Computed example of a mutant assay.
Amino acid sequence: MKRNNKIYIAGHKGMAGSAILRKLSGAGYSNLLGKTSGELDLKDRIAVNRFFKEESPDVVILAAARVGGIWANNEFPYEFLMHNLQIQNNVIDAAHSYGVKKFIFLGSSCIYPKYSPQPIKEEYLLSGELEPTNQWYSLAKITGIKACEALRRQYQKDFVCLMPTNLYGPGDNFDLQTSHVLPAMLRKFHEAKNRDHASVKLWGTGSPMREFMHVDDLASAVLFTLEHKLEETIYNVGTGKDLPIDELAVLIQQIIGHQGKIIWDHSKPDGTPQKLLSVEKLKNKGWQSEIALEEGIRNTYDWYNMQQNQNL
């Protein structure tokens, strides 16, 4: 991969996309291209094709998606299915039509069946029923993976799909209605600490096992994929380690310095019981995560505090 190849990062303003932009820029890639959703609506097929015709990118990294936690997935199933399908279909087809040399598609570990054997291997895809609370998003991502697989098989295209575990880090979404579990916890404990260490109510039982990876590790995996020829369509990207949600809560509570009670709302859903990725396939190619969970959460909390201070 030449350092002056034109690389289009779709979703460069999001948490994953911005981390990828920082990583590639730091690695010396000088021809990086990004468009905000206001500048280019990826759901608009005509606009996407016009963009690809005018810009002719050599590489495309698709980090743009409609994402959210359990509540958002449950409340907006149509948008999570249709908007993601529209984005993926338009970008993947344009990349194929306009001769993109390498395409990296970012998915999610939620593509795998709810009751997959643990740790989850790539070949478990489509081997069972999906988790109902996020099936709409999952189905869209599975379709994107299969589109990339079809292009590899029929046209020998270098299209690779990376399936990251639960991501967190600078640029995360901290909205309590639409965020994922880790940033939601971070905000709740921070605000409770500022209210004289008030109690914090959290969803579910705290028993599900979850794996978390700092977004800078995902960016590192994208850079690795960019610079290496990978023979298969799909690769998991994770840490290979998980912990119960209640232990995560205690860790975040300690990092923030909250001294109040934690109350678990058992009337709320837990989601998938366990979701630990097998990371052997990409590790055997030469990549593995490096950022420990406590270090990553501290880094994220520092970023969160900096944003709060800027908004004062």
Rank of each mutant, 00 (worst) to 15 (best):
N4E: 07
V100E: 00
I263E: 15
A27S: 14
R298F: 02
H228P: 01
T239A: 04
T133N: 15
M82E: 12
I252N: 03
I145R: 09
L218A: 14
K53A: 14
G69A: 04
I87M: 06
N173Y: 07
R210K: 06
Q310H: 14
G107H: 07
F174V: 03
G128T: 11
E79H: 11
L243K: 02
V181C: 12
P208D: 07
W287F: 13
S138I: 01
E211F: 04
S179E: 00
A65V: 08
Y235W: 13
G34L: 00
F212C: 08
I46N: 09
N194P: 02
W287S: 03
A65E: 10
V215C: 10
F103C: 00
E75D: 05
I120T: 10
Q86F: 01
R210G: 15
S179R: 11
L130E: 00
L251Q: 05
G171H: 06
A184L: 09
V200L: 08
S109D: 11
Q310E: 15
E131A: 15
E280G: 04
F76Q: 11
D93R: 10
T143H: 14
D158K: 05
K157N: 08
K281T: 08
G286L: 12
L21S: 08
N194K: 11
L151A: 13
S278H: 04
G206A: 08
Y29N: 12
V237H: 08
L226T: 06
D44S: 13
Y112I: 00
E247H: 14
A249Q: 02
A64C: 15
P57W: 03
L32E: 05
S116H: 06
D246T: 03
V48I: 11
Y301M: 12
W287Q: 09
A63W: 03
D302P: 09
Q156S: 15
A184I: 06
G144A: 12
K121W: 02
S289I: 01
A94S: 09
G204I: 00
E122P: 10
S18W: 10
K35C: 05
M1Q: 07
L139S: 14
N74L: 13
L139C: 13
